Simulated assay, not measured.
Amino acid sequence: MSKASAARKLAAAALYGGGGLSALGAGLYGVLTAEAKLARKTIGPARDEPPPDASGWYGRGRPGPAIKIALLGDSSAAGYGADRVEETPGALIASAIAEFADRRVYLKEFCVVGAKSSDLAAQVDRALPIEPDATVILIGGNDVTHTMRPSQSVRYLSEGVRRLISADAQVVVGTCPDLGTVQPIAPPLRQVARAWSRRLAAAQTIAVIGEGGRTVSLGDVLGPEFAAAPALLFGPDQFHPSVEGYRALAGVLVPSVLAALQRVPAEEIGLEAFRGEGVLPVTRAAIRAVNEPGTELDGTEIGGRRTGVRGLWVELRHRRSRKDVPGEAPESQENATAPVPTEGGPEAVG
């Protein structure tokens, strides 16, 4: 069997197989396993030291009360591979929110390198006590590499989003990136990774919208743009994003976090048809989002109803990018006299 033929069958199994890849023949499974071992060898062992923790206060001198943001997820949220805290997604997002909202920001990281969707419950447990105004979740890549069934991944994510929404937090989920562009992954595993990650991203979108959150597609942020400049946007292991890659990731998320916090200019509140924005059924919108860079989806109503004949109604948007804001190092307390926040919450937040 040729590699191309194997790729087609493996991708079909990832896209349509209810049981994942377990039903594949021994030959196809052997090809997949061999490619996975080669990819792991190329990527190399994980770093022993964790990424810098971006938890703390941002926006020195700006007014309060502080906007509280919880950051949940995996290594893409934690900023694996970054050497300086200013380079991590948490610092980049919090610095930008402080700049554009003109408010003090308190960000707390609960993300863990290597986390899967099944680990979200514990992260939500730790995040709820700080009573976040907004929660950003980046999860899914490890679900794909560990061949977790999308139905399982989505169930864990739905439960987490539901709990956060019930606690009055706005939730923004960056959906699973396109892993088919990761350089160490060779065909046919690359085609499987692409098909599986895109399927998961669409399923995540539908689930999150159903629970009242909003999503931002990351497939093209870590997809064609990364493939075109792997040396710039991928880190040394060619698997995790580089500093420039994390900056691109934050740049896509920040406008949607601002929107969730109702911190957008008046001229951007309405849908802009000339930018390809509009109202669509959620399934159709989810498929479009997988293939369009930085697409935001959020639930809406038509005639006072959230649901139409074809499912939930959603607003599909392509948020205007914001100017680049350099990441800053967080402060450990809100001001010179305030107590240092504990994991239970930022004590000085008004």
Rank of each mutant, 00 (worst) to 15 (best):
S2R: 00
K3I: 12
A7K: 13
R8E: 12
A13S: 11
A13Y: 04
A14L: 09
A14E: 11
L15I: 12
L21T: 05
S22Y: 15
S22Q: 14
L24A: 08
L32T: 12
K37C: 11
L38R: 07
A39Y: 06
T42C: 08
P45F: 03
A46P: 13
R47C: 11
D48C: 09
E49R: 15
A54Y: 02
W57R: 11
R60E: 15
R62N: 08
P63V: 03
P63M: 01
G64I: 07
G64H: 12
P65K: 05
I69S: 03
L71P: 00
S75H: 02
S76W: 00
S76P: 05
A78V: 06
G79T: 03
V85Y: 06
E87K: 01
I93R: 00
I97K: 04
A98S: 02
D102G: 05
D102P: 12
D102A: 07
R104A: 08
R104G: 09
Y106F: 15
Y106N: 05
L107R: 00
L107S: 03
F110C: 04
A115G: 05
S118Q: 08
D119P: 08
R126H: 14
T135K: 10
V136H: 03
L138Q: 01
L138P: 01
V144G: 12
V144R: 11
P150K: 00
S151N: 11
L164Q: 04
L164S: 04
S166C: 07
A167P: 06
D168T: 14
Q170I: 07
T175F: 07
C176H: 11
L179Q: 05
I185Q: 03
L189I: 00
A193K: 00
W196Y: 04
R198C: 10
I206R: 02
I206P: 11
G210A: 09
G210F: 05
G210L: 10
G210T: 11
E211R: 13
G213K: 06
V216W: 01
V221Y: 02
G223Y: 01
G223M: 00
P224A: 00
P236Q: 13
Q238R: 14
P241W: 03
V243S: 02
G251S: 01
L258A: 04
A259M: 11
A259V: 08
A260P: 12
A260D: 11
L261T: 05
V264T: 10
V264F: 03
E267Q: 00
E267F: 07
G270M: 05
V279G: 00
V279N: 02
V282M: 09
A286M: 01
A289K: 04
N291I: 01
N291D: 07
E292N: 08
T295C: 10
L297E: 04
L297Q: 06
G299M: 09
G299A: 10
T300L: 00
G303M: 03
V309G: 01
V309H: 10
G311D: 03
W313S: 10
W313D: 10
V314K: 03
L316M: 08
R317D: 02
R317G: 01
S321H: 06
R322L: 07
R322N: 04
K323L: 08
K323G: 14
V325N: 06
G327D: 01
A329W: 07
E331K: 08
S332I: 12
Q333D: 12
E334F: 01
T337G: 13
T342R: 15
E343G: 14
E343C: 13
G345Y: 06
P346Q: 14
V349R: 13
